[in-house]
Amino acid sequence: MTEPEGAVPSTCAHCGAALEPAWRFCEDCGRDRATPPAVDATLAFSAADPSLDLDRVAAITDRGRRRERNEDAVAIGVLGDVAAAVVCDGVASAPGSAAAALAASEAGLRELLAAVARGDEPTAATTAAATAAADAAAALGDPGDANPPCCTYVSALVTDDGVTVGWVGDSPAYWAGSTGTRRLTVDDSAAGRLFAEGVAVDDPRMAEPGAQALERWLGADAGPITPQVRRFSPTESGLVLLCSDGLSRYLDAGVVAPADHLGAPLAVARTLLGRALAAGGHDNVTVAAIAAVGGAPA
């Protein structure tokens, strides 16, 4: 017999355990009884294909014009109305960093959507995902190694009530809206902080020794990692963009045109890749784009 519409369910929708009327959380699995069970996630990884498309979220990665190999990695996924992406950039000076980027991107995305499925709020899910990614990258090296595999990390989680980005290193996130493309992240470097303060990319301080050096990364020698997290509710529809520095160098310098904020995610990702390659393609280029519907108060 089905329960009347609006009635409090007497069994947990997640695990099937019996519930008492006064219980908010299931005593067996711990989940909020008001939270509907999540549908299965759909995931896609660049290890299988350099061009990924799940409609609301898409991504593309390319070796670029000057690198011998691609050490970037990207993973995208959807879970019901939730869309997510992770971009990792292997540090070229550390051998094996392509593998670190792959492992971190896949582990980060899996945990990000798993955390959403178990009812974690977006900031907690973003933090858990970065921790999983850090563990995956660290497992490929040893803290005593002189130069273990390592990578940067950036994630985006788009839900019906907002956008949450988390990052470690210098792979950035942007919001593409009707007024242009603006940065959501601050690189973990002296140059990154200067840029966030409004210093031009051609300012001499940007070229000082150590200005571009990463202060945080994922890897066996990175130590404990807590991502920086930013959350906001867009007031208009647009795109969340994640990328590696093969694109961000040109975006930040104003060398490439802003993204079409109402374009299809895969088309936008391909266009931005083409612009980065036309601008010089100095590095591996990875772009992920997630459509976000605006209208919630900022």
Rank of each mutant, 00 (worst) to 15 (best):
M1A: 14
T2S: 13
T2V: 11
E3Q: 15
P4H: 07
P4E: 09
E5K: 13
G6R: 02
A7E: 05
S10H: 13
H14R: 13
A17V: 09
A22Y: 10
C26L: 12
P37E: 12
D40L: 14
A41V: 12
F45R: 08
L52F: 04
L52E: 03
D53K: 00
L54P: 04
L54N: 03
L54E: 06
R56P: 02
A59T: 09
T61K: 03
T61W: 06
T61M: 06
R63F: 04
R63V: 15
R66K: 14
R67M: 11
E68I: 04
A73I: 06
A75W: 10
I76S: 01
V78K: 02
A83V: 01
A84S: 09
A85V: 02
V87T: 10
G96V: 06
A101M: 09
A107M: 07
R110P: 04
E111R: 14
E111N: 05
A114K: 08
V116N: 04
A117T: 07
R118P: 07
G119H: 04
D120V: 03
P122Y: 10
A124Y: 01
A124L: 14
A129C: 11
A129Q: 05
A133S: 14
A134L: 08
A134Q: 12
A134M: 08
A134I: 02
D135C: 08
A139F: 11
A139D: 14
D142H: 15
D142T: 15
D145Y: 05
P148L: 05
C150Q: 15
Y153P: 11
V154G: 01
D160F: 09
D161G: 08
G162H: 03
W167E: 01
V168P: 03
D170M: 04
S171V: 05
P172R: 01
W175H: 12
A176D: 01
T179H: 10
T181S: 04
L184Q: 03
V186R: 00
D187T: 00
A190L: 15
L194N: 05
A196Q: 11
V199W: 06
P209G: 12
A211S: 15
D221M: 11
G223V: 12
G223P: 11
T226N: 13
V229G: 03
P234H: 01
T235L: 08
L242Y: 06
L242I: 10
C243Q: 02
S244D: 08
G246H: 08
Y250R: 06
Y250P: 07
G254E: 12
G254L: 14
V256W: 02
V256R: 04
P258K: 04
A259T: 07
A259R: 02
D260G: 06
D260P: 07
H261G: 08
L262P: 00
L262W: 01
L266V: 03
V268E: 05
T271N: 11
T271W: 07
R275N: 09
R275L: 15
A278S: 15
G280I: 02
H282V: 11
D283R: 04
D283T: 09
A288M: 10
A289L: 05
I290T: 06
G294Q: 06
P297G: 12
